[in-house]
Write a protein that binds this DNA or RNA. Sequence first.
RNA 1: GCCGGGGUAGCCUAGCGGAUAAGGCGCAGGCCUUGAGAGCCUGUGACCCGAUGAGGGUCGCCUGGGUUCGAAUCCCAGCCCCGGCGCCA
Length: 428
Amino acid sequence: MIDVKLIRENPDLVRENIRRRNDPEKLRILEEFIEADRQWRLMQTELNNLRKKRNQLSFEIAQRKKAGEDVTQLLIEAEMLQNKIKEMEDATEEYRRKSISILMRIPNLLHESVPYGRDENDNVEIRRWGSPPKFDFKPKGHLEIALDLGLIDEERANKVAGSGFYYLKEELVLLDLAIERFAIDFLRERGYILIEPPFMLRRKPYEGCVDLADFETVMYKVENEDTYLIATSEHPIAAMYMNEVLDEKDLPLKFVGISTNFRREVGTHGKYTKGFFRMHQFNKVEQFVFCLPNQSWEIHEELQWNCEQMYRMLGLHHRVVNVCTGDIGTIAAKKYDTEVWMVDGKFREIGSNSNCTDYQARRLNIKYREGTGKPPKGFVHTLNSTALATSRTMIAILEHYQQKDGSVIMPEVLRPYMNGIERLERKK
RNA sequence: GCCGGGGUAGCCUAGCGGAUAAGGCGCAGGCCUUGAGAGCCUGUGACCCGAUGAGGGUCGCCUGGGUUCGAAUCCCAGCCCCGGCGCCA
């Protein structure tokens, strides 16, 4: 969430920033909040005054009782006052809840370098690497390739788990693991701390991590328990330091997280859903950073450069876009999407990299201090970025490296992680 | 899952129905000192009103309910931590 004080003290600045998102609904939410907040503060002041009276009265009752005086009249008065306070408390609490729930829906402030635009078509390409692979045959899509190689079983997965699931087999499983190991080693060499988080989270920490609308469309809830399957390791890693104050000397804290991710993918009709592109379950290596406010923009570029280097090492034709104001999500101040070339000639998102500034940290209440024993100075900044999502990376590898005979050559950097396998071939 | 013990400010600890949560450590400021240290003094959670002032007020003792004129303190439910028993890959 964004800083309430900023809205109170400088509403025009916030208004102007949100206007750039091309979303009148968000502006309306802001105005709604300003009014609810004004109302709440009035009620809060009145409530405080009533409570003050109660405290005075209580003190008086205690004094008179001690002195052995009759307090009947005062008790009647106190009861009436108490009823009034109860009413006022309920009303104030209702307003507080209301204004917080509105506040949570106000998006993060956008960085000035975010390009203005309406939707994904207005995202601005800032880099492109490589060139489309050339084939002297009609290239196949990844799903067909994997089926022909006998390395997946789609039908049986659908039978037992529904659509959006696959049994991966043999070398394809090794490839999945190899991609993870490659990314892990790459990032550990650069000082990132490897972490495997819990794959489930309670609702409270989860609310700190995501846009509330996501709960319905992406999260799987565990029945009869207050837990949700994680949609990405970003979430448990972000929540790890909930309600804590980090020491400045420990920052930046850089993590490489691995997890399986679970997504319901409700309402994705019309989106590209072929094969491994949009599954209910997939593995991903993630970069996550907690840092000081003045470090986050530099680190945002570092995270981006990390994944671009990996795609180069894998030899995958890709481009990077600066996601425009109309397409960026609620919590990011700036976002890069990396898009990889796919066999139908289109670039599709393979990973994204967001600087959430203090938006996520404020919700999760993660602060920093300047030294031991010193009071909290402010909220940390958080960044999350895909390192490699194995499913989409496998799509790209299968499609880039397919051969006329149906086999697929493995990128050299992955071979050490695959027992030296150089090529995926159909077995007899 | 069952039986004990516990959860108080950045940390450690007291209070266990009568306002303002005691003390220590750490941290910040001041006095003293050529400087540092020691010693002494003051401050050290969130929120609201107020002018980003002076000042005033409310809340805060794991979370949520309840009892009471009044709850850190009593009652109920839940979460977490530490022991012991059971079950288990």
